[in-house]
Design a protein around this nucleic acid. Sequence first.
DNA 1: GCGCTTTACGCTGCGCGTAAGTATC
DNA 2: GATACTTACGCGCAGCGTAAAGCGC
Lengths: 301, 301
Amino acid sequence: MNVTLKQLQAFVEVARQGSFTGAAKRLLVSQPALTVTVRDLERDLGVRLFDRTTRKVQLTQEGAGFLPTAERLLNDVHEAVADLREVAERRRGQVRLVSLPSVATDLLPPILARFGECYPGITVHLHDANASAVQTRVKNREVDFGIASAWRSDADLSFTPLLSDSFHLVCRHDHPLAASTEPVRWHELADWVFLGLAPDTGIRPLLDTVPELPANVQRPRYEVSNIATLDGLLGAGMGITVLPRMAVPQAPKARCVCRPMIEPELTRRICLIQLRDRSLSPAAASLAAMIQAAAESDTAG
Amino acid sequence: MNVTLKQLQAFVEVARQGSFTGAAKRLLVSQPALTVTVRDLERDLGVRLFDRTTRKVQLTQEGAGFLPTAERLLNDVHEAVADLREVAERRRGQVRLVSLPSVATDLLPPILARFGECYPGITVHLHDANASAVQTRVKNREVDFGIASAWRSDADLSFTPLLSDSFHLVCRHDHPLAASTEPVRWHELADWVFLGLAPDTGIRPLLDTVPELPANVQRPRYEVSNIATLDGLLGAGMGITVLPRMAVPQAPKARCVCRPMIEPELTRRICLIQLRDRSLSPAAASLAAMIQAAAESDTAG
DNA sequence: GCGCTTTACGCTGCGCGTAAGTATC
DNA sequence: GATACTTACGCGCAGCGTAAAGCGC
């Protein structure tokens, strides 16, 4: 397999121009160099492609038959390369990401809007999932990257902090704890029915890091797996809960009161999560960068 | 356009093997050389194709998308080249030739049979025509080469003598001139009705070179354009004619007698005719060579 | 003799292999 | 420490350009 694209290009150009001199000009090489290139191609193929006198250059029968093939081959290669360059230049491509629902609904929409303006050729697939599922889907390469709190450390994954999100007590407006909006201490939760989240959420493991966590919080009477359900229970006045600020439903079924938790303050760090061994596609890298920038300016402002 | 087939080949092989070391072995290059080749390809495309740790080599999303394309491109090139090599090696192809009817029916069949055995992949298109038409069709590139007597010299054509074919008197068995089989002198034809051939045949111009050609031969009472018609007239006893030995019909309608012409002997030289500026295709060259060899051994034997 | 292709020749730089470096298991 | 990829370095040769030669018109 000696044939090169350069040789094919030379052949096609000479055939089109019907002249070595003309083709050499178009190809920006000296005319003798072109002669040699074509001669080598003929040697490699074992077939004469041109009949040349000093006055005329004419395709042989075989050359005429090969010309369309060679043109097609060159065209195909050019197209394939151009396609990939489009991807490289973010004029085409896709990004798949998965994030916590709260992030997907609150933080991402404006960023995605801006991203869509910058790179109109790129399609974005956005899924939401809880912290556990985010990590799983990143690890399974189902997505380019994820956004969630670190659920469980994993050597294959890298976590880049984006935001800190502090925990708040959440209770219905008519609950006794809603009487004030002052910070709350953890032991103050002890006397109320607590609505907990399942262990595969990012929130639960964080609660466990609080020293002297009241028993009703540690082993909640009700345990649900997502915020919407929790919102329902809250609205029904079935109990209280603690949630990161961003996770508090925007339009709760019931009017709720939020009071920051203190002693200790507890925050979850929302991170950009990616596979350590995997590089981001050009499009994904751009979106990730945009998200990081937005998070930083959020934190600053 | 920097991308080379070698780069594509390297990419495909690394992708298939999942390893630079393995691919380098298969490609018979050193492993560092392969690293550089792939890195250059990635640089040229502007896209990372592999995520590589020291332990694993894995296609990126873009690489995975590009792999089938690259494989197809390489495959297409290989196929195209293989096709042309088949032509070069005479395992495929075609030869078009045109010859005088006498040659086509007498000389060529055994040669074509042998040629067909040697090169079973090659198709042969054989047409017949008179000397004038043979030259025209060679010149128009309708055929690879022709076989005929030189009808009129032409600077664009080359004539390679194959056979000499001496002229004979031809007359029906009951004609007075059929009484002997001895050589005949030209003036002996003067008293009989002569059946002539049209000026665009190769035979007519040759007759004109005979000194003191009898008037009835110079301006024949009947003039026809092909041998079959001539044969019909001969069979009807309408006259006599002179023909090169090979042109005498094999199975004449009437039993005919042939007597060599002398004083002067007249021969036509049957030539292989080709365009001077045009090289023969591999298959055509082989057939032409075979014909020349056969003609030589014919002459010798 | 002019214009085109081919051949000849000297040189540059690409691309290879060897060897050293680096990172992971 | 073993293994696999990357980087560094030196070298040979492919392939270029210039110059000279062949060949038709």
